[in-house]
Design a protein around this nucleic acid. Structure first.
Lengths: 238, 238
DNA sequence: ACAACTTCTCTACACCGTAGACTGTACATG
DNA sequence: CATGTACAGTCTACGGTGTAGAGAAGTTGT
């Protein structure tokens, strides 16, 4: 008769003490590996060899858990608000964020979707850091605070849009990518989608990096003119 | 002893025959009214006074149901690929899509997120229609098919990004909007978020329409130069 | 009248998030 | 050493979810 089945489980060395960081990074790993749906409280508990209920010490909700994962991912993004060349810095941030998204594609829906159900001021602070730092960058560069906000919106909007676009066309294993893509396109009725079907080959090799950079060039050129003319400032203090 | 409790329920006049359209539009109404989480098979069944299982005749999945709702919303978007003034048409589409998003804010996460888990060729056809039609518009305007695709990407990326941005700052009831927003901002540590906090008032009155239009101007100006120079064509056939 | 087909319902299962009460351990204090 | 207190982790249970599979009811063609 063994009264306590596992007093000192000798064969499980990795049963470290829980911590918010451990919980969140395990959650992130799980999402990266198996997608958002795999991240259930029960599954995560199993992964950490703990009762699912113990997780509620470190995230009061499943929603909060998801927010935590977003935050953790965004923390990988480094921003240097003191860079004197604001355009170069914005370019760098954009490419970094793009790579981040490609590294954690399953998290992107969270990044994009969670803020929609959380008023700005109530978001996890880590999520707002990029916004604050980019504002700082722009204001340092000479923009009015108000017009810095406008520039941020145009810039970040474009950036998120690009990332979504690119991910929408990518996703599948790069190996079968072209095959599957073509297969998919072949399904389209030729009558209704002539252009789309014809573009199969072009769709297949999408150089997201180049495309992003080109878009940024257009946008930054346009935005820089706002800095040159005092036009923007006129809005704030006429 | 009532053997059949409800042979001809006389008090429910609206028990029409089901159809995919009825199912989807009821689903959309439900999402609009109570959000995405309210759209469960059981709830929708209840709404239609049918057993939840009957829905599987018209959408083989919950995921397929969501796709159907996206499709239904996108069908509200009218595009005129024959418009000779492509820039004006792109502007119009952008504003229309923005209004569509504001009319169905709860559906936006679907619009943005579902394609991420569906290879392009496998999406509901209604979802691809805008892409095809915009390509047609651009090609008619003189763009190479390949560069039309690039223009589409820059344009649609920017557009989606803007919509996400705007919705992220809006969401709450316009009444309490400013109050809640300020309250939220007040929560931020002044030390770490000076710029963001200072921008409270500016954040509160966001003229999304103007902002979108301004961004479009920048972008379209940039894109038009590609049409002028044969630069883009050089990429395809050197 | 019968049969074939479609539409809708019933039952059941495995899984989900999480409330609430509980156990066990760690440590500060007497 | 004893004891109180805080905290970490657990257990059980409840109401909800999507959906497989078999069956009932309704509709239509002959």
């Amino acid at each position: 008769m063994a009264p306590a089945p596992n007093p000192h489980p000798p064969t499980s060395p990795r049963r470290a003490r829980l911590s918010r960081d451990l919980v969140l990074s395990t959650a992130l790993a799980l999402v990266d590996a198996e997608g958002l749906d795999a991240l259930t409280m029960r599954r995560l508990g199993h992964e950490l060899q703990r009762d699912p209920m113990s997780l509620y010490r470190y995230a009061s909700n499943r929603a909060a858990l998801l927010d935590g994962v977003s935050e953790m991912v965004l923390n990988e993004l480094a921003i240097f608000p003191d860079d004197p060349d604001w355009q170069a810095q914005l370019r760098k941030i954009a490419h970094d964020l793009r790579l981040l998204a490609l590294r954690h594609p399953n998290v992107v829906p969270l990044l994009v979707t969670r803020p929609l159900s959380t008023p700005l001021g109530m978001r996890p602070l880590g999520t707002l850091r990029p916004l604050e730092q980019i504002l700082a960058l722009l204001i340092d560069a000479g923009f009015t605070p108000a017009s810095a906000l406008h520039v941020y919106r145009a810039y970040y909007g474009f950036l998120y849009g690009h990332i979504l676009n690119e991910l929408q066309e990518y996703i599948v294993d790069p190996d079968e990518n072209e095959a599957i893509l073509r297969l998919g396109l072949h399904r389209l009725p030729a009558k209704d989608f002539p252009h789309l079907r014809a573009l199969g080959p072009v769709l297949a090799d999408y150089d997201g990096d180049a495309e992003l950079d080109q878009g940024l060039s257009i946008l930054l050129a346009g935005l820089a003119t706002q800095l040159a003319t005092p036009h923007a400032r006129a809005i704030q203090q006429p």
